[in-house]
Amino acid sequence: MRRSMLFLPGNNPNMLINGNCFGADAVIFDLEDAVSPQEKDAARILVRNTMRYMDFNGCEMIVRINSIDTDYWKKDLDSLLPEKPAIILLPKTCTPEDVLLADEYMTQVEGKCGIEKGTVGLMPLIETALGVENSYRIASCSNRVKALFLGAEDLTADLQCKRTKEGREIEYARTRLVVAARAAGVDVYDTPFTDVNDDAGIVEDAKTAKELGFTGKASISPRHVETINAVFSPTQAEIDYAYEVMGAITLAKQMGKGAISLHGKMIDAPIVARAERTISMAEALGLDRRDINE
C-alpha cells in the first residue's frame, strides 16, 4: 500500500536518517533534481549507506535515479540496485523504449548481484507531453512497471504553461494517466503539491487526486504526508459501508439470491469489488469497523 511517497534529497544526511519518522508509506531517495552534478557521487554513497544500515520499519524504499539521457543513470543503478529498492523511479520517461532500456540494464545489474530478475520494480515518471501521450504503452510495455507517476512541474514547462495551485493545466494529464495506468493494471501516483506552507491547499489537491482515481500522491514536504495519508485512507463511513456490503452479499448467498439491495440500491459486482478493496486497505491500516454499540 502506497498512499504517500515522500521525496528525500539524496545529499541531505539529516533528512535521510530521519526519513522513516514522517509516516510516509514510501520514501523516494532522490538522486536527480535535488542533487547538483558535483554531488551526484556523494549522494549515491549516502543513499546506498542509508539503505544498507538504516531500519525503515516497513517504509518502502524507492530510488529516483537520473534520467537515461544523462551520464549518471547507469552508475546510479550500479550503486543502488544491489540494495534492493522496491522501485526505481525513472524520470522523464517519454516512450516504451525508455522503459525497456532501463529494464534491460536493471536485468544485467540484477544478474551481476545475484538478485532474481525483476525483483526491483519500475515506476516511469511521466513529465513530458510525449510521455503523457504514450502513457498506456509505457505502463504496459514491461512487467517491471508497477505504477505511473505524474510529474507536473517539468510537464507544465514542456506544455509551455504556468503551473498553478488549481491545476487546471494538468487536468488532462491527470485523467489520461489514471486511465492509462488502470487500463494497464498498474497503480498511478499524483504529482507533489509544492507550496509547503499552504495547509488547506494540500488537502484540496490530494482530494482532487483521489477523486480522479489516483492510488496515492507524492510529497516533497514531510508536512504533507499526514494529510495525504488521511485523504487516501478509507473514511470510517466507507469502512462501515464496505462491511455492510459484504454482509449483504453473504446474506444473499445464504438465501440463494443472485442480487440483493442495500439501502434501496442494488449491490452489483463493482460495488462488491470496491468494498473488498476498502476492507483490505482498512485491515492493512489497522482500521476497525465502528463498534455499533459505541
Binding site: 539529516n14 533528512m15 530521519n18 519518522c21 514522517f22 509516516g23 514536504s221 514531510p222 508536512r223 499526514e226
Partner: peptide, 9 residues
C-alpha cells in the same frame, strides 16, 4: 523543521 513538527504532532 520537519523532525520538530513530527514530534509536535
Amino acid at each position: 523543521d520537519p523532525v520538530g513538527l513530527v514530534m509536535a504532532s
